[in-house]
Design a protein around this nucleic acid. Structure first.
Length: 357
RNA sequence: UGGGGCGUCGUCAAGCGGUAAGACACAGGAUUUUGGUUCCUGCAUUCGGAGGUUCGAAUCCUCCCGCCCCAG
């Protein structure tokens, strides 16, 4: 991190979830001499015990306590209506259309790096900081979003929706740290969140069962047939929302080889299944783009899901969309999920997968 | 009711006298700031039922029950 005096007294709003990462992010900035203020977004989510949450109720208490230890102010912003509108509702609409949403990306896109960021700017803060593992670097007048030092925790896949013009106003203090360093740092600073578990599962879904959300809102997904590629009926599904492409479990069909969800036939309310070999596709079309780089090299790398090695591909622009062709066929390309482009460490941008081909 | 065949885990299926493989499904766990994938573990004291032969049977014999096929 830049430790020069130019950072002195710069005002930073730190988005704090109550977890180790954002707590240490705040700690690092404080020690670097920034004037920091913590903020936790209240997302209107019920808190279940034993659930590590990125945004729930006692998350606020944990964040407040850390801010107390750091002797910095802490605010809570009510983002519940926005969360409901832009993340949760979209999440359900996507599933009902046979797509697989990525709510964590939408949370970054609409809440953290849009609403929260502009609010921070409006309040006179120079920067918004989060505990994400990613780096932002300046090169002349060009700002780049980069993979973090800890490749194992690389979260850039979730960050591609950040607008290019916002990069100069965002700080990722953990970009050069390893996860174990972060925990050690939290421990030595006496932060009570040092041993807190990694967040997992969708924060607004109780007990990992997102189907309950649909029930609570009286949204139904009708049962239908499960068929193979030839159209032969193999079984019944409980509603299209319970499946995603590449899914193996939950089909309840006994066959010679394991069966995977290949795609959906929305018109017939069918789930089409086949062998693992049928899961591979040569490319995809992506829309809803956010490009961070002005130019794409001829050949780039793309990630079609979190925690997967980027794959070599070529990208062509086609009326507002990108046509991505992979060097090697990719498994389980899933509409609704993000595709994020890289050139070495740099995030070039990304989009939402419309279809595979 | 003349002849033939078959009944082993939820499903498919090895075993053919020596003390129940495997696959799929399912369950639990690990991994993970989405979903899924993947990995690990578990999963028939029992072989349609009842007797009998044998040191010992799912495997041999008898009867019964239930399916399937070919003849009428």
């Amino acid at each position: 991190m830049d430790n020069s005096e130019s950072t002195f007294k710069k005002k930073v709003l730190v988005a704090m979830s109550g977890g180790v990462d954002s707590s240490v992010a705040a700690l690092m900035l404080k020690e670097a001499g920034y004037s920091i203020t913590g903020v936790t977004m209240c997302l209107g989510i019920r808190q279940d015990e034993d659930r590590a949450s990125c945004c729930g109720g006692d998350a606020i208490e944990d964040a407040k306590r850390v801010c107390g230890q750091l002797e910095v102010p802490h605010f809570v912003f009510d983002f519940a209506p926005l969360m409901e509108e832009r993340v949760i509702r979209k999440f359900m609409e996507e599933y009902l259309e046979g797509r697989t949403p990525n709510p964590c990306i939408d949370c970054n896109r609409y809440l953290k790096f849009d609403a929260l960021l502009s609010r921070a700017r409006g309040m006179g803060f120079d920067y918004l900081a989060t505990g994400h593992y990613a780096r932002i670097e300046r090169e002349d007048h060009h700002w780049r979003l980069l993979k973090p030092k800890d490749r194992n925790k690389d979260q850039t896949y979730f960050l591609y929706p950040i607008k290019k013009e916002d990069l100069p106003h965002i700080l990722f203090p953990l970009g050069d740290m390893k996860k174990e360093d972060v925990r050690a740092r939290a421990h030595s600073a006496g932060l009570h969140v040092a041993q807190k578990a990694e967040s997992q599962d969708i924060c607004f879904v109780p007990q990992g069962n997102y189907r309950r959300l649909f029930e609570e809102r009286n949204l139904t997904s009708l049962p239908g047939d499960i068929v193979d590629l030839s159209g032969k009926i193999l079984g019944r599904h409980t509603g299209i929302i319970s499946y995603t492409i590449g899914q193996r479990g939950g089909l309840g069909i006994s066959a010679k080889k394991p069966l995977y969800v290949l795609r959906f036939d929305a018109a017939k309310n069918r789930v089409i299944v086949g062998g693992k070999e049928d899961l591979f596709a040569a490319g995809l079309i992506a829309g809803d783009l956010n490009l961070l780089a002005d130019e794409f090299p001829d050949e780039v790398e793309a990630k079609i899901r979190y925690r997967k090695k980027p794959a070599h591909c070529t990208v062509k622009k086609e009326d507002g969309k990108l046509r991505v062709t992979f060097q090697e066929a990719q498994e389980s390309i899933t509409p609704g999920q993000a595709v994020v482009f890289y050139a070495e460490d740099e995030v070039l941008g990304g989009g939402v997968i419309d279809e595979s081909f």
